[in-house]
């Protein structure tokens, strides 16, 4: 019995701010920042967009892409670290807005940047158990960064929704494997507006250790080598980390390049690895093998191995691709950016 992805949808707000513009305000050297982070610009939500609206647009694109009957979606889980309410779910808003209510279960997930992949695992379990026909897992964020913090250069907005099921698969998920420890590399306390982070501590003991362990664990479990994959996707907090971790694990630039969208999108947190996977699905062919490993601070990684099945070609154009969503960007200056982010 195979389980996998039956559809996917992405949404990216149309506004952007360039590294140069943020650097101008804080007196940083933009070339230095771009070189250091591997990011040139990032997406910014409109003033009336938040994690819920982005999740809804992504979910609607997923429903549209393969014409899923929303009443057959038995579970909706929205992963985010910027849910509009601390108490009151985002998932119910999505459920109502795609017409999936009332006979389904729904919940919000939080695990820093990997809450969306945790949601996929939850859906896989319920589908496998036969509790539900389809489950929808969403990663959506309007990431917060304190003005002047290094995170401000990358904290972006976007969302991706995946429908998990057994029928009409476009990608069969061969297996999933996770690696989790208690590692406080990045956090935001209740009532605080912006997260804090451990600086360089977020690197080796957090991002690299967890991604490497989860990915190695998965490959050992199903007995595959890096060379068996056509595409590989890692969480993209910046343009440097995913390339370095790929190299560390023995993957090539060719394998990672198609999903590497962070330079013009920024870090979309819970949506990061899921939008990157969507960019790969936008161009993968039948039989392509894909490895995706997310990372969420705190800390954990979920690794997935999947193989593209037939049928992906017909549905690809029924919803916008990641590259299409990245086009037509409108650039903001820092003052308008601050207005959009509600800073002033």
């Amino acid at each position: 019995m195979s389980i996998g992805i039956t559809s996917y949808g992405v949404y990216i707000p149309r506004y952007r701010i360039k590294v140069e513009e943020i650097a101008r305000v804080w007196g940083d050297d933009p070339e230095n920042i771009k070189r250091g982070l591997g990011v040139c610009e990032k997406s910014v939500p409109d003033m009336d967009e938040d994690t819920a609206t982005i999740a809804v647009e992504a979910a609607r694109n997923a429903i549209r892409r393969n014409n899923t009957n929303p009443k057959e979606v038995g579970a909706i889980y929205v992963g985010s670290e910027s849910h509009p309410y601390v108490v009151k779910p985002t998932a119910t808003i999505v459920a109502e807005a795609i017409g999936a209510t009332p006979y389904l279960t729904a919940a919000d997930f939080e695990f820093a940047c990997k809450a969306g992949t945790a949601a996929i695992q939850a859906c896989m379990g319920e589908v496998a158990a036969g509790f539900i026909e389809y489950g929808m897992a969403i990663g959506s964020d309007v990431s917060q960064a304190a003005p002047g913090d290094a995170l401000e250069y990358t904290a972006a907005a976007g969302g991706a929704a995946y429908i998990i099921g057994k029928k009409n698969l476009i990608a069969e998920i061969e297996d999933t494997f996770s690696f989790t420890t208690d590692t406080p590399d990045f956090w935001r306390r209740e009532g605080m507006s912006y997260p804090l982070h451990g600086g360089r501590f977020t690197g080796e003991p957090a991002y690299f250790r967890h991604i490497v362990s989860a990915t190695k664990g998965l490959m050992e479990k199903i007995d595959v080598k890096p060379g068996d994959y056509d595409f590989v996707v890692f969480h993209q907090p910046n343009g440097k980390f995913p390339i370095r971790v790929a190299k560390k694990l023995g993957f090539t630039k060719e394998q990672i390049q198609p999903g590497l969208i962070v330079p013009t999108l920024g870090n979309t947190y819970s949506a990061s690895s899921l939008i990157s996977l969507a960019a790969v699905l936008d161009e993968a062919e039948q039989g392509s093998r894909i490895l995706m490993t997310s990372f969420g601070s705190g800390a954990g990684s979920d690794s997935f191995s999947m193989v593209i099945t037939e049928g992906i070609d017909e549905m690809r154009d029924k919803a916008p691709t990641v590259q299409e969503l990245l086009k037509g960007a409108r650039y903001l200056d820092y003052a308008l950016y601050a207005k959009h982010k509600g800073v002033m």
Binding site: D48, E49, D50, R60, A97
Partner: peptide, 20 residues
């Protein structure tokens, strides 16, 4: 049609979502 935040009742009130 698109899905957007329409209005909110201050920073601690309910958020009204809807169609634009």
């Amino acid at each position: 049609s698109i899905f957007r935040k329409i209005a909110e009742e201050g920073p601690d009130g309910v958020i009204c979502y809807g169609t634009k």
